[in-house]
Design a protein around this nucleic acid. Sequence first.
RNA 1: CGGGGUGUAGCGUAGCCCGGUUAUCGCGCCACGUUUGGGACGUGGAGGCCGCAGGUUCGAAUCCUGCCACCCCGACCA
Length: 492
Amino acid sequence: MSKNLTSRAEDYSKWYNELVVKADLAENSAVRGCMVIKPYGYAIWEKMQAELDKMFKETGHQNAYFPLFVPKSLFEAEEKNAEGFAKECAVVTHYRLQNDPDNEGKLRVDPEAKLEEELVVRPTSEAIIWNTYKGWIQSYRDLPILINQWANVVRWEMRTRLFLRTAEFLWQEGHTAHATKAEALVEAEQMNDVYAKFAEGFMAIPVIKGVKTESERFAGAVETYCIEALMQDGKALQAGTSHFLGQNFAKAFDVKFTNNEGKLDHVWATSWGVSTRLMGALIMTHSDDKGLVLPPNLAPSQVVIVPIYKSDEQFDAITEKAESIIDELKALGVSCKFDKRTTHRPGAKFAQHELQGVPLRIAIGPKDLENNTIELARRDTLTKEIVPMDGLATVIKNLLELIQNELFNKALTYRDEHITEVNDFESFKKVLDTKTGFISAHWDGTAESEQKIKEITKATIRCIPMNNKKEEGACIYSGKPSTQRVLFAKAY
RNA sequence: CGGGGUGUAGCGUAGCCCGGUUAUCGCGCCACGUUUGGGACGUGGAGGCCGCAGGUUCGAAUCCUGCCACCCCGACCA
């Protein structure tokens, strides 16, 4: 294992993989395509969960839990949804193993233990949930139902990458039921707004809100809202989606209610989700060649204190100082860890905390004891300064807020510089190959043109931005008339 | 599932073409000592069914056959 990460310029993909493993976020497991999320990575995910969970509850949602398995007959009920996910489903066919008579010490599937009906391991939970909702809804008085679940799902992907695409991943999925179309539409848009606010305000990741084209839409949805982020290598990442499902699932699962006029109608639905993929977005938005850069909101420890000492007396004096700093920070709601390991030298600790993205590092040594100062180092800018002990906690608290804002602004500047307006196909291809990023271009609105552009350039329509400006133009591929520009990019 | 590649210590590797001492080196690991303001140094030590199963041979990490696993490129995708 080499000391330094592969640089982003050298091999972005390699940099990403090394960073995930070396920063101790996650690693590949014995199960193909499935990762082990390690404590440090999971702590970051828990920070995301806590904030999202709070935001869901503030918008009136409750948590519940539905089964991992979906009977095949339920799964296939909503045809488009089933068809969309069929190719990547893990299926349980048996419920028992037995000793293999032909192979001592080995087990085999008991051929006698075949299930009457196969169970699909959920790739998403609409089917089992709507089958359940059928029993919960009779009247408009039972609506709306506003439920979220934190769960794992399985999608049998051909090619996987830590956090970005794994065969099993963690996510939350909201599933709501409404009496009217208008209300469901408001819900779907609201949750997309929640995701955008979370990504930008909490994770410092700028996103573009928009709707998907028909071909990119969630299987079974009428409209898919999304937030799209731009990574440092110029590729787009879908960071969250919120679907207006119309009455598709209500019809498939026969979920009807009596409205306040006494008429029977199908229920209107939404579903929305974000996953551990956000970890990938976090890494690829902020981190650098020295490792992870965490926005203060997401850092398991916002500050780390590294003691530098020669004698036990010095160490004791530093410890006393460190503990008083920790107390003051705690009172201001700032988390701080004292790295008093005796097994590593200061240099090694500096390097490790940089690799793991701790936003601020305090070093206290003999000189600081003498002068009543500390050395304060910023992870994002890699700058250091000597700061007096007096009033330190407030300085740190303000600095953390500043870092949070500056990370967002830096990412926003990069993103905005990488949205290029293009009016012909040659320029389109050139921008994709050289500058990369989002391309704002006219499109004739047909799936054919979209598909051709994808085949030729590998770029897809990431979204049609919300409140998109109407503008007359000609499709960059077909030359046919267009009423608005859409955002293209190569995507993860 | 198509095309290419790789399996040697926890990780990264040399050796393989052309079979022949005790399987190479680095990192990491352990012990002791000296160190500690940017990834410490010295000395000593532990760690290997050379992917698995057959075969050829006096002798196989090396040659042959079969199998397995993983990686990369495509198709698919939160």
